[in-house]
Amino acid sequence: MITRRRFFLLLPAYTASAQSLFRKKQLAPPPPTRVFVGTDTAKGVSKGIYHCTFNSVTGQLTVPVLVARTLRPSYLALSPLRTGRRSLYAVNAVPDPSATVTTFDLDPRTGVLTEKSKVTSAGAGPAYISVDSTGHAAFVANYFGGTIASYKIQPDGTLSQPVDTFDYKEARFGHHGPVPGRQDTTHPHSVMVSPDDRFLLVNDLGNDALSVFHIDRMTAKLTPAEPLLTTLRPGSGPRHIAFHPNGRWIYLVNELDSTLDHLLWTTTHSSAHPQGLLVNTNTTVKTIAPDFPVAKNTASEVMISPDGNFLYASNRGEDTLVVFSIADDGSLKEIQRISCGGKTPRHFTFDPTFRWILCGNQDSASITIFRRDEGTGKLMGPLQSAPVDSPLFLLFA
C-alpha cells in the first residue's frame, strides 16, 4: 500500500521515469557524404574526377582532390548497389567520334575509383548518361555526334558495346531550329529514364523536339514510341527535364531561349504495346529576369524538391539560381532569384537530405553551397565556396 507520504517521496522518480519515456531519442548526425566532381580537362588545369566530402549538418564541403584521371568527364551516373559494390560511369565529352564512356569501380570504404573498362559512346561529344533503377541498362546522348546509344550493364558492372544506336540526323527526328551556330544540326542533349523504367525521353537541342522510346530492360533495346516526337517552339533548345514526384508532370528547361515548359506525361499499362505520350500544356515561363538579354544567357539545369512544391533552375550569363513554387495545377510562380556566387552555373544538385544545394560554377573554379528552407523553398547563401577548376557535374554517392 502506498501512503500519502510515500507517494510524495516517490513522485520525483515517477516524473523522471515518465520524462525519460517520452523524451525524443537523440539521433546521431548523418556521416559526411561523398561527392564526385566531373571537370573540364580541356582547360588544361583539371585532370578528371575529383572527390570531396559534404557534411549535411554543417553544410561544409572539403577541398576536392583528384581521384581519377579521365578525359573531360562532363556527366556522371551510378549503378545500383550490387554485392556491396557500385560502378560509376563517366562520359568522356571530347568532340571526336572516338569518344568513350568509362566505367569505374567505386570502393565503398574509401571512395577510390578504379577504372574497369571503356566503350565507345557511339558518337562525338557525349553529354549525358543515365541508368535505369534496376541496373540492367544505360543510355548515352552524343551532343556533337547527333546520336543516342543504349547499353546492357553486365554482371561486373561494366557496359556492353552499344545495343542500339539512333542517328538523329534522320528526317523522322525533325528539322533543325532557327538559331545559327547552335541549331545547324541535331544535338541530343539528354536521355532521361522515366520513373517506372519503361521509357526513355530524349531532348534534342538542335531540332527543338523531344522523342520517346520504349525500353526493354533485359536487353537494353529501344523501340520508338508512337508518336515519336513532341515538337517545341522554334529556337527554344530543349536541354534537360525533371519529373515531378507525381509522375504525371514533366518540366523542361530550354537552353537557348532561357525558358521552362510544363508537359503532361501519360503511359499505357499494356505490356504488349506500351506507349508513353507527352502533351505540351503551352505554359512557358522565363528563367531570366524580364530586363536581362536572352542572347546573353543559356539556361542549364532544372530540379524539383521531393515534396513536389518547388522547382529550381540555373542561368549561365545572368549567373543565378531561380526558385519557383509549383501550384496544384502544375503552374510555376517565381519566388526567388539569387546569385549563384560564381560564374556559369552549369550544374547544381541537392544533397541527400534536400536541405542544401551545391552549385558548380564552371568559369569561376568554385562549388558554392546554399542552405534550402524546406518550408518556403528559398535559398540562403552562398555559405561556402570550395575551389575546383572547371566543375561540370556534381554527384553524391
Rank of each mutant, 00 (worst) to 15 (best):
T3S: 15
T3Q: 05
L9I: 10
L9T: 14
S17V: 09
A18D: 02
A18M: 10
S20N: 06
F22L: 14
F22A: 14
P32F: 04
R34T: 11
T41L: 06
S46L: 09
K47D: 06
N55H: 11
V57E: 15
P64F: 04
P64W: 02
P73E: 15
Y75S: 08
T83W: 00
G84H: 15
L88K: 03
Y89D: 12
N92V: 10
N92Y: 00
P97E: 12
P97L: 09
A99F: 00
F104E: 13
F104P: 04
D105S: 15
G111A: 14
T114D: 03
V119R: 10
Y143N: 13
G146I: 02
I148V: 14
Q154V: 10
T158R: 14
S160F: 08
D167Q: 07
H175P: 01
D184W: 06
R198D: 02
F199K: 04
D204A: 11
I215D: 13
D216V: 10
R217C: 00
A220G: 10
K221G: 08
P224E: 08
A225G: 12
L229T: 07
P238K: 03
H240V: 02
H240W: 01
I241T: 09
L252R: 12
D257G: 12
D261E: 11
L264S: 14
L264D: 14
H273I: 04
H273A: 13
A289F: 00
A295R: 14
T298W: 03
I304C: 06
S305P: 04
S305T: 13
N309C: 07
F310I: 05
Y312G: 12
Y312E: 14
Y312Q: 08
N315T: 13
L321A: 00
I326E: 11
I326D: 04
G330R: 03
I338E: 00
C340E: 01
G341Q: 01
G342C: 04
G342H: 05
P345Y: 01
H347F: 05
C359K: 01
C359A: 07
G360N: 04
D363Y: 01
I369P: 00
R372T: 06
E374T: 15
T376K: 02
M380F: 03
F393R: 09
F393G: 00
A397I: 05
